[in-house]
Design a binder for these strands. Structure first.
Length: 871
RNA sequence: GCGGACGUGGCGGAACGGUAGACGCAGCAGACUUAAAAUCUGGUUCCCCCCGGGGAGUGCGGGUUCGAAUCCCGCCGUCCGCACCA
């Protein structure tokens, strides 16, 4: 039997210091947990206990774990261990988000195959995570690059296709010229690729899109129900989905162009239609192309605008530029009047219809544009108290509410009524209608990369795009690829893409694009409930475990990954594959782990072990003795050489110490600074606890000995109060407070001494168990010292209950104020009647001095807290 | 520009509207050491004071309240997200 509970009676205390041998103990307890299957979850929750699914975002196997991982997985492990002890059936899995560009870059730079590189990294990182003592059920582990995973993903995609949720369409896409691939909108940050940092270009390509926009209304409205999500993440998603109410308005072209006889515009301000001065279209708009074909100056303008691209938006913001196409449109409400059609650089093809009507008096951008090109600025909204005869627009558009004028049938209405009336009139004339517009766009998932999940379709010239037949799935990535040539290695492969059309049998071409890796991470949380199944999901398992009760990860995924996962879950729900519509009931976003960085006078970055701290809080370089620039709270990065290797920390201090420090330092949602002094402080505490227990066991009564009635009362009170306080702190993610309470508890146990041995045993056993979610190995070690014959591990025990009557105080310290200022404190027995409390308080000499003979006008007593005299 | 969060000792931070600064880090003093490390003890918001104590204090200015770090209004600052979104 693999029973790690070993008799470990320390000898009676000797002079030599006892030290906790974490290096020996930690692997021993890890083996004990695994040996007993402490962390195994049933395939389907069996209903004997409430289920609880704890999930931390799967790591990308980049090489080694970093401190951000340590923090993330420690937080999750505290929750998992705590919930298990609270009687939940807990699912706590781990795996790898394993497709992605770094593997391909490694292949190009070092000639390692992406698969070999990835699986090697996984092996390294798995071993590192296992050293942390996480309560993970490793049997469920998988990597998204396993064919057994991505093959199932291909099935889901084909289901999406069948359901009309995936389609191939030609569109303007974001092209990353460094990574040579398309990027989703969400992956373009400040006009640059999220990974390469290269300026993104606009290209027109045929791509696969997932219809996330079909779910825009529910993705937005369901945010309200996610009450265990951080408010700011919900706001970010709401902004990203971007609902706005307005109208589509069709303007008839005076002369048809580009096969069109009208231009459609989206506006949120149909009330200001009478303030129109011009119509403007985006450079990518079909009308712009038509105008360019006839006029080289226009063609040159378009080329110029496009070359600036979205990336220059910030710089270009001030400057509105445009060119008149010569085309004119009729106004829907004003007979016989036409307006010019311009191409303008501030009109975006990807929002609304790619065309706007310009109302300079009511929109700052339109006003800037009109002023620059000398277009008219007719005012249509009169501010409250304004004089219609004299009101004029200067350099600032009037965007607030007011009364419509110069607006025909809208005259006299306010903004809201004007909008309603204008929309009604447009609909009556057939010139437009009220609509809700969404900022969210469909998710382009095609990537021109090798190391991703192949998109399972075949292109046949005769039959069109065909799904790969079920019998030919999974479409496996070929191993023999050449990374020397530029471009997509799958496309360059000599044979892989040549296949027969499943429909007609003639020569056809396999799709060589792979999926965006965010597809892989959009359903892994469901797959892990049945990771080896022959179907993507097993309904009983997925529906039994989902939604994830507590999801934990970085705020950087606030939009991308979380929105895509919500979409996938809703789509699978709609297809009847999942019983839940939201994947993550609770979300916690942790802060970053930072570290001071050090820079020598000549600009070299120095590693922490190359500098010596000075008394003033600065530092000098060890090798040269020169002062270095210290900047605190820098994100850990290889270039600044301020990374701390978790493996080295565990070697030196043990996993429990690393976990304890990371939890103790500050609230988990904030950024934390990793400090050497902080870790050594945590290390001191682990040793102190071990000394406390090992030095005490000799004098304790047998396990199970109840303290005599009334004995050791003060210590027992602290014990039961601490149990309540730590429980409360763990429930609310206040892990730093839980740590502080345990510190206080340890101080109190030491201060109490050995007066009542049974109460001391109770306290020591409690502290051993209270630390267990945070320092699981030390908890087991202490428990085995205290209960050498106990068969159950702490990991198998139920959480402690606080006994309310033992926790109750029999006297309280009451603060006594005069006019809200503290004058003294009084120790008052619980249950003292109010009149006595007032009398005692009033009799105090400090209180008397503060009252200074004045009559007391009011006496306030909050039992157990405060007395306040108002004079 | 729009939206959001946050400002508490030297530092990280604690505080159902009720004794501000728990707990830790750092530094200071002392004990144990030949010495150091380790460990233990004490004090550490600022100012005044002989003890007892008194005054000020949670970014700034107002307000509500017997009582405000906490609630409300207005500033200032820091950080984050979105950003030519029609």
């Amino acid at each position: 039997m693999n029973d790690a509970v070993q008799p470990n009676h320390p000898e009676s205390p000797r002079a030599e210091p006892v030290r906790y041998d974490f290096a020996g103990a930690e692997p021993r307890w890890q083996a004990a947990w695994t040996g007993r299957g402490c962390f195994d979850a049933p395939d389907v929750p069996d209903g004997s206990k409430p289920k609880y699914y704890v999930l931390e975002m799967f790591p990308y196997p980049s090489g080694k774990i970093h401190m951000g991982h340590v923090r993330n997985y420690t937080l999750g492990d505290v929750v998992a261990r705590y919930k298990r002890a609270r009687g939940h059936q807990v699912m706590h899995p781990m795996g790898w988000d394993a497709f992605g560009l770094p593997a391909e870059n490694a292949a190009r730079e070092r000639g390692v195959h992406p698969a070999a590189w990835t699986y090697q990294n996984i092996a390294t990182m798995r071993a590192e995570l296992q050293r942390m003592g996480l309560s993970i059920e490793w049997a469920r582990e998988f990597a998204t690059c396993d064919p057994s995973y991505y093959g199932q993903q291909q099935k889901i995609f084909l289901e999406f296709m069948k359901a009309g949720l995936a389609e191939r369409k030609e569109s303007w896409v974001n092209w990353d010229p460094v990574d040579n691939t398309v990027l989703a909108n969400e992956q373009v940050i400040d006009g640059r690729g999220w990974r390469s940092g290269a300026l993104v270009e606009k290209k027109k390509l045929s791509q696969w899109f997932l219809s996330i926009t079909k779910f825009a209304p529910e993705l937005l409205s369901a945010l309200d129900g996610l009450d265990r999500w951080p408010e700011r993440v919900r706001l970010m998603q709401a902004n990203w989905i971007g609902r706005s109410e307005g109208a589509r308005v069709r303007f008839a072209l005076a002369t048809p162009a580009a096969g069109m006889d009208e231009v459609e515009v989206f506006t949120t301000r149909p009330d200001t239609l009478f303030g129109m001065s011009f119509l403007a279209v985006a450079a990518e708009h079909p009308l712009a192309a038509a105008a360019a074909a006839a006029n080289p100056a226009i063609a040159a303008f378009i080329t110029e605008v496009r070359s600036l691209g979205t990336s220059e938006a910030t710089i270009e913001q001030a400057e509105k530029r445009g060119i008149d196409t010569g085309l004119r449109v009729a106004h829907p409400f004003i007979e016989g009047v036409t307006f010019p059609v311009w191409i303008a650089n501030f009109v975006l093809m990807e929002y609304g219809t790619g065309a706007i009507f310009g109302c300079p008096s009511g929109d700052q951008r339109d006003l800037d544009f009109a002023r620059k090109y000398g277009l008219p600025v007719p005012p249509v909204i009169l501010p409250p108290g304004g004089d219609p005869a004299t009101f004029a627009i200067g350099d600032t558009a009037y965007t607030d509410d007011g009364q419509l004028y110069n607006s025909g049938f809208l005259d006299g209405l306010d903004m809201a009524a004007g909008k309603r009336a204008a929309i009604a009139a447009l609909e009556a004339k057939g010139a437009g209608n009220g609509v809700v517009n969404w900022r969210l766009r469909d998710w382009g998932v095609s990537r021109q990369r090798y190391w991703g999940c192949p998109i399972p379709v075949i292109h046949c010239e005769a039959c069109g795009t065909q799904p790969v037949p079920a019998g030919q799935l999974p479409v496996i990535l070929p191993d023999d690829v050449d990374f020397k040539k530029p471009g997509n290695p799958l496309d360059n492969h000599p044979t892989w893409k040549h296949v027969a059309c499943p429909q007609c049998g003639s020569a056809a071409r396999r799709e060589t694009d792979t999926f965006d890796t965010f597809v892989d991470s959009s359903w892994y949380f469901a797959r892990v409930t049945a990771p080896r199944a022959e179907t993507p999901l097993v309904a009983e398992a997925a529906n039994g475990w989902l939604p994830v009760d507590q999801y934990i990860g970085g705020i950087e995924h606030a939009i991308l990954h979380l929105l895509y996962s919500r979409f996938f879950t809703r789509a699978l729900n709609g297809l009847g594959k999942l019983g839940t519509a939201e994947p993550f009931a609770g979300l916690f976003t942790q802060g970053m782990v930072q570290h001071a960085s050090f820079r020598a006078p000549d600009g070299r970055w120095l590693a922490p072990d190359e500098v010596e701290p000075t008394a003033e809080g600065g530092a000098t370089e060890r090798a040269t003795g020169l002062a270095v620039t210290v900047s605190r709270n820098d994100k850990m990065s290889k270039s600044k050489r301020n990374t701390i290797d978790p493996g080295a920390i565990i070697d030196r201090y043990g996993a429990d110490t690393a976990r304890w420090f990371i939890l103790a330092d500050n609230p988990p949602e904030r950024d934390m600074e990793w400090t050497e002094s902080g870790v050594s402080g945590a290390s001191r505490f682990t040793q102190r606890l071990f000394r406390l227990v090992s030095a005490s066991v000799g004098g304790l009564p047998l396990p199970g000995t109840a303290p005599a009635e009334g004995a050791g009362r003060d210590l027992r009170r602290v014990t039961h109060r601490t149990i309540a306080a730590v429980t409360e702190a763990l429930e609310t993610f206040s892990f730093n407070v839980a740590v502080a309470r345990i510190h206080e508890f340890a101080n109190a146990i030491e201060a109490a001494g050995a007066q009542d041995a049974a109460a001391r045993r109770e306290a020591l056993e409690a502290i051993a168990r209270l630390i267990s979610p945070m320092m699981p190995h030390l908890a087991e070690e202490l428990w085995s010292l205290l209960r050498p014959d106990e068969k159950m591990l702490v990991a198998q025990l139920a959480w402690l209950d606080s006994n309310a009557s033992l926790a109750a105080a029999d006297s309280v310290t009451l603060a006594v104020q005069v006019l809200g200022k503290l004058r003294t404190t009084l120790a008052i027995p619980i249950g003292t009647d109010e009149a006595t409390v007032f009398a005692l308080a009033e009799a105090d000499e400090n209180v008397q001095r503060a009252i200074a003979g004045r009559p007391i006008r009011k006496r306030i007593h909050v039992p157990g807290r405060i007395v306040n005299f108002v004079v």
